[in-house]
């Protein structure tokens, strides 16, 4: 039932790949900086400044994809014991709250981006890098994340309304961990069979 529109998924996955590439870059940059300092008496100017800015993209570009894979933590403790009608209402409340949070945070992030751009805000190190591109990435990441989260919440509400109640002790986080475990086990098993060949 809960299928997320294809373009959204593609966009989210592209952002993850971008973040992944930045993570590898960050890793190699640190290695090169430390190596340079240890063996060649020359570090890469502004490594810390660049890394600090990159962290923002690496930290949040994956938000929407993580939401698509239900990776964000929530805990079902009380809900399992409530009658279906109440659970339906709660699903509605959740949808409203997520939408509300999404609007407030996105609005605020837009303000932060505009302000950084207009003020010509820069990092305070030697490179004086403009911060607005990262704040733009932040806005994009969060808006996309909230779109997916709201989409999921609405669909969950609709599912419940149609009587498809999610199984009691299946936490979202658990479902995600199970998927991970399957992935991981597959990799490990695949690896071993490869070796035996």
């Amino acid at each position: 039932m809960r299928t997320i529109p294809r373009p959204l998924v593609l966009l989210a996955e592209t952002l993850v790949i971008v973040a992944g590439a930045l993570l590898v870059f960050l890793m190699l940059l640190t290695v090169a900086d430390v190596g340079g300092r240890a063996f060649a008496d020359s570090s890469i100017l502004g490594t810390v400044e660049i890394s600090t800015l990159l962290m923002v993209a690496i930290a949040f570009l994956g938000l929407a994809a993580a939401e698509i894979h239900n990776r964000h933590v929530s805990v079902e403790l009380v809900e399992a014991y409530l009658p279906p009608v109440v659970r339906l209402i709660l699903a509605g409340v959740r949808t409203v709250l997520i939408t509300l949070t999404g609007i407030v945070i996105s609005w605020g992030l837009l303000g932060v981006l505009t302000s950084a751009f207009e003020r010509g805000e820069t990092t305070s190190g030697i490179l004086r890098l403009a911060t607005w591109p990262m704040k733009g990435i932040l806005l994009v990441s969060f808006v996309l994340f909230f779109v997916v989260a709201i989409w999921n919440a609405i669909n969950e509400f609709l599912d419940m309304k149609e009587g498809k109640v999610v199984e009691d002790d299946q936490l979202l986080a658990v479902q995600q961990a199970i998927d991970d475990a399957d992935d991981i086990t597959d990799t490990v098993v695949a690896h071993r069979t490869e070796e035996k060949k």
Binding site: E13, V16, I17, A19, G20, A21, L23, V24, I58, A59, F60, L61, G62, L63, A65, A66, H69, R71, H72, V73, D180, D183, T187
Partner: peptide
Amino acid sequence: KDSLVESIGLTSMTFL
């Protein structure tokens, strides 16, 4: 690629 996707997902969860 799979490792990066996995790592970025866990990272964004932690940072949120």
